[in-house]
Design a protein around this nucleic acid. Sequence first.
RNA 1: GGGCGCUUAGCUCAGUUGGUCAGAGCAACCCGUUUACACCGGGUAGGUCGGGGGUUCGAAUCCUCCAGCGCCCACCA
Length: 726
Amino acid sequence: MDEKFLKPYSPSDTEKRIYELWEKSGFFNPDNLPDAKEREPFSMVLPPPNVTGTLHMGSALMLAIEDTIVRFKRMRGYRALWLPGTDSAAIATQARVEKNIQKTEKKNRHDLGRDELLKRIDTFVEQNKTTMLNQMRAMGASLDWSRYAYTMDDARYRSVMEAFMRMYEAGLIYRDYRIVNWDPKGQTTISDDEIVHEERKAKLYTFRYSKDFPIPVATTRPETKVGDVAVAVHPDDTRYQKYVGKEYDAVFCDVPIHIKIVSDKAVDPKFGTGAVGVTPAHSQTDWEIADRHDLPHDTIVINGYAKMTVSGRLEGKKVIEAREIVVDWLNNENLMEKEEDVSQNISTAERTGGIIEPLPKLQWWVDVDKQFVLSHSEIPGIASGDATTLKEIMRKSVESGATTFVTERYKRVYFNWIDNLRPWCISRQIWFGHRIPVWYKNDKMKVQVESPGTDWEQDPDVLDTWFSSGLWTFSTLGWPENTDDLATYHPTDLIETAYDIIFFWIARMILMSGFFIGQVPFKHIYIHGLVRDVKGRKISKSLGNNIDPVDMADKYGMDAVRLSLVMGTAPGTDSRISEDKIRGYKHFANKLWNITRFILERTKEITLAEKLNDADANIHREVSNLIQEVTDDIDKYRIHLASEKLYQFVWHRFADEILEESKPILMGDDKDARASRARLLRETLDIFLRLLHPFMPFVTEEIWQRIPDRSEKLLMIASWPSYHKE
RNA sequence: GGGCGCUUAGCUCAGUUGGUCAGAGCAACCCGUUUACACCGGGUAGGUCGGGGGUUCGAAUCCUCCAGCGCCCACCA
């Protein structure tokens, strides 16, 4: 017996060495697996972590689940590909770098210029990337590094440009002047789903524009009222019918305004006074009302820095200051009728926390409702050559079952989102990202990747990071080229990700994959929940409750960290992590270590029986049932149950009972019983190592490398145990 | 306003198509150090599975109502 077994299992002496053994074997690349060509493919892309920092427990959970599945599939004989990558996370990354520079050098991005800022970002990204890839290795992730992709690398750049061009040619990408979600803090537009609503207390003011104005209106944003062009009332509201169509002039806080009374069904007669001051340039709803009534849209009174642009006492004031000034003015003029406290949802930018200022801007959009002809379609319900829409692709892909949610309820969440989907704003006023391939000269515009000539100016904006992420399942496999990888591994079999990016990412991948290759991007969607701290709180920097997975692995071993994340964590539900939990699973790794020691020690001088006796055959059947259940569980992605069953059986059935009762047998006089039991124990150990390997790859491989009679050299590619159907 | 969930032992949660599903881990208490492991073993705890009603031969598991809690979406100014 290997002398190592005489001491407790030491993860820190083991993990790095074992990972190198795997990586050097070349079998992370499925094409190197024995008889690769005969194997059925299984593929999965890693949701690329943002290069903004280091891995957190959420990423660790994701890696643990995915690695467990891909190791299982590999052992089951699949040509298993797990494709690694990292994400540039445009806005988040640029914001981080800008902040650092602001702090250390007191410079903003304009002081540096576009080229210099991008250089700085590249340096930052390189550093983080190295750290993160090493962390993924530390997790034991059996990723095929030969296919590593980064959202901003050359191959992905080509895919993104190609995608933009094709969508533009199909008329799905267009440029439009309309209200956008402007983030004054990040100085960029963001899409609807990058908004986070925060409930805050606000005051609702009821006032009149002037003494002779007939209708009082209510607002939470008095400062925008200098941009009003109309008052809208509900068509059925009898109180105000007589005023509809009338026009009034007033000077509101030094600003001359012209107000027309219109009737529009978007107005709720029961809210406030039943009359809305219409501010087309600073409200989505109002912009649409203005559209319907042919009102002017160009009454911009707030700029991109959230400051007032009108002249008079409000000039240059921040919106918050302007609000107070307007309120004072209304009170002084006796125009204020009521002030009441209300709570309202305020829109903030997910990445920067800035309060969104709706502003009209000329931006690029993806039209999800426009019809186009999908020339090639493998999506059930849409035939090749059918006219369809992006929204329909998203709907049919899931409705038809071509792609399924492992946790059924997320299907309804997904449909709910599609139903509310509006045009997707894809241009961002930042510098880090894929620059929009559009060129301008005077009032001419060309859409192409290469510059049309020296006197043409490229659009300064870059694409929403989710635009390129949406291509991920196929851009990583070589699209737009017709590669073998694409033919072999797409659609991918599984996507595994957190529920907070179903809309950002899952839906966009379905959209993009459907449009560009007429396929679903993946057959199954496994959604995992958030990892919370021991008190159930979200893990965040400000709370300082982050537990670093690699730190924990240094203390307790990565197998323990992985088990603590996976055990009892049902798909789609949040879980809690604590150091105590991790410590507990370290004990399990050691238990397995000692089980091995016991078996090797106690059976080394016994010649194994040819055949199991009846008692041992019964135990073998028990083990066989376990194999069946565990296999079935993992096949159905119930890895939380599979791991618990294994833990339970190995420790409390096998070690506590079977090994205990084996002691007298192995030391007894019955030679046949001894031989039979020795064989049972050796075989069962072999089976356990295989079954446990996907969950705790390091300790199982380490043991495997040290047992004398193993049939296959590397546990990582050993075959999954078979079982007899009852 | 719309949607999705949660409520099971002190704590954290499992419970897959309704029938050994009333469970696990941790914590607690008692006992044990005969050589695999003290990173251990044995034992103990009695939770009417949030509440009411219903379907069923049978429900934690399906339906309905009620009470708490959470999340997501939404242009109520």
